[in-house]
């Protein structure tokens, strides 16, 4: 596909710098837009939020969310690339949608994350995914709340399909690495399974750190032993 080139040419650096500038600008816009939601709600309803409630609730929520946010940012940024990161963190649903979409697109186009080629492919894929998700949710809300009724999504005939969307999605993704790195996949999944035996309800964010470290260690070891 793309020509081989040295690690980070000045032009490449220039492009990434631009992406970060655009990203930061859009992120500031997103923060302002998000903050305007409660402001407008309060103004319209003619009420102020309950200060005492917020004083009690916000420290709890912020501890939880900020710690999770730090973990997510560290785990996802190297995978999503710059543009993909700025887009994904605004639109959300990263682990169950934006990340697999980005990985799939880079796999199919045979490009790697954090190269310029990987950067543009992942950004296009995540951008398309964000638009499609937003349109489906908007259309779905209108259709199901006005015409059909949300219980249709719970119909026994189709409910299992959506109940099992994650194994369907991640099974396919795992298989795409299986051909070349089957030993690594088996080791990493086994580590995850063993950890879950002892801590079955561990959140995927925490588990992911363990499996990433295990896969990296196993990958390095297998490479040295020439098993890969």
């Amino acid at each position: 596909m793309a020509k081989d080139k040295k690690y980070m040419s000045p032009r490449e650096k220039d492009y990434f710098d631009k992406v970060h500038r655009w990203g930061i600008t859009w992120t500031i816009g997103a923060i302002l837009m998000l903050l305007s939601v409660p402001v407008l709600v309060c103004a319209k309803l003619g009420v102020l939020p309950d200060g005492a409630a917020l004083k009690q609730v916000l420290p709890q929520l912020m501890t939880l969310y900020w710690l999770t946010a730090i973990a997510e940012v560290i785990a996802y940024v190297p995978m999503l690339g710059a543009g993909g990161t700025y887009l994904s963190f605004v639109t959300g649903n990263i682990s169950n949608l934006k990340l697999p979409v980005g990985l799939n697109a880079m796999n199919s186009a045979k490009v790697k994350a954090n190269t310029e080629e990987g950067e543009v492919i992942a950004t296009i894929a995540i951008g398309v995914s964000a638009i499609v998700t937003t349109v489906i949710i908007a259309a779905g809300v209108v259709i199901f709340s006005l015409f059909v009724g949300p219980e249709v999504l719970q119909a026994p005939s189709i409910k299992p399909a959506f109940d099992y969307v994650l194994p369907a999605l991640f099974g396919a993704l795992a298989a795409s690495y299986f051909e070349k790195y089957w030993k690594l996949v088996i080791v990493a999944v086994l580590v995850g399974v063993i950890v879950l035996i002892f801590s079955p309800a561990m959140g995927v964010g925490t588990l992911m750190f363990i499996t990433i470290v295990a896969a990296l260690a196993a990958g390095f070891g297998m490479y040295k032993l020439k098993w890969l």
Partner: peptide, 13 residues
């Protein structure tokens, strides 16, 4: 690949 596999494996597990 290991980093990607690490992420995917958490969900598979």
């Amino acid at each position: 690949a290991s980093a990607f596999i690490g992420i995917v494996s958490a969900f598979v597990a």
